[in-house]
């Protein structure tokens, strides 16, 4: 096995957690195979992230330029392509985020290197990587191999590799790199960031969340769960399909593209447990799931489960609370 290159992701002046997760896992692999770990940082002038990354890698290659202040897949692709062609790392890892999803497949075609996305585990066997991915909305896993190639690309799922608090080490080298002089003008230009999560209620502050998913079936059915939430003194939240259908405003949404919540109790009704949803409830004290499908992935992360119709359970809860 050869070197691993990890592309750092940062937003609004902060290195994103996924970067540290990738560096942690990559270092574990590099240790096993005694190889060097390199972090790649593309950022605006004087971003100041390099030292933080150096504590977690053998070296950091830094490309600083005003044009790199916010992510731009055209520029990232050009620069990374040149680095990969020149250094030929064994593996290059990119975050499986919106930005990573915009970059990695293009880089794969540009470099000619094979790509596996959204990996939850990465190993190497006989000099080739093997990755584990989820398929069919997390109902099954797959073990994926690659066609032989001088290098391999993967995008890595957030939360798959959690670094311990003491993941730092002797700082590695920070090496400033020149930006290629002949970079083409990007075809996409940044205008602004827009906060979409704000609203009348703040689900992140609730002690008890009653959360509904696509299992609610019809918009009209929300009223009965709202009633239950009111009776319990709980706040109503939901999974993405409920917002997509405009049944509840976006500020109710839990998950990667919604909010991360940390209630004492999270009661999930008719939510299957897709990773983008459960990533938002890792901070919950206790998770209770009600789902009519006994095999729903949510039961893998919940503390308590009820394999039944959500309306039956909701009505029984209401009756009990009324009688109490």
């Amino acid at each position: 096995m050869g070197e691993i290159y990890v592309v750092a992701e940062h937003r609004k002046g902060e290195v994103r957690e996924i970067t540290f997760e990738m560096l942690f896992k990559a270092r574990e692999l590099c240790r096993t195979f005694s190889h060097r770990l390199t972090a790649l940082l593309l950022a605006g002038k004087d971003a100041g992230f390099a030292d933080d990354l150096a504590k977690r890698a053998d070296r950091v290659l830094v490309f600083e330029n005003d044009r790199l202040e916010t992510f731009n897949s055209d520029l990232h692709k050009e620069i990374l392509n040149r680095v990969i062609q020149k250094d030929q790392p064994f593996m290059t890892w990119i975050a499986h985020t919106s930005w990573g999803m915009d970059l990695a497949p293009a880089l794969s075609v540009k470099t000619g290197l094979p790509l596996a996305t959204d990996c939850v585990d990465i190993q190497a066997e006989d000099g080739r990587p093997i990755v584990i991915r989820q398929i069919y909305s997390g109902k099954l896993f797959s073990r994926v191999s690659f066609k032989e190639s001088p290098g391999y690309l993967m995008t890595v799922r957030s939360g798959a590799f959690l670094p311990p608090d003491d993941a730092e080490m002797e700082p590695g080298e920070v090496l400033k790199q020149d930006i290629p002089a002949d970079l083409a003008e990007p075809r996409k230009t940044f205008v602004e960031f827009v906060d979409t999560g704000a609203g009348e209620i703040d689900i992140t502050q609730a002690d008890l969340l009653v959360s509904i998913g696509r299992g609610i079936g019809e918009e009209e059915n929300i009223a009965t769960i709202r009633e239950l939430a009111d009776r319990m003194g709980a706040t109503l939240s939901c999974s993405r399909p409920v917002v997509d259908k405009n049944w509840l405003p976006k500020f109710h949404q839990v998950g990667t593209s919604g909010k991360s919540v940390r209630p004492k109790v999270y009661l999930a009704l008719g939510i299957s447990g897709a990773f983008q949803h459960v990533a938002g409830i890792t901070g919950a004290g206790t998770v209770i799931a009600v789902n009519k499908d006994r095999k729903a992935p949510i039961f893998r992360v919940a503390d308590y489960g009820v394999a039944d119709d959500l309306f039956k359970v909701a009505n029984a809860l209401k009756e009990k609370l009324a009688g109490a």
Binding site: G138, V144, S145, R300, G305
Partner: peptide, 30 residues
């Protein structure tokens, strides 16, 4: 460029403690 070598069920986790019984007793337990 990639090949699925194997498809498998999600690895066992301790998973949720399942609460069984009729709706009223489930509600009481919850």
């Amino acid at each position: 460029r990639t090949r699925i070598e194997e498809v498998f069920l999600p690895p066992e986790t301790t998973g949720a403690e399942m609460i069984e019984g009729d709706a009223a007793s489930v509600a009481a337990e919850l």
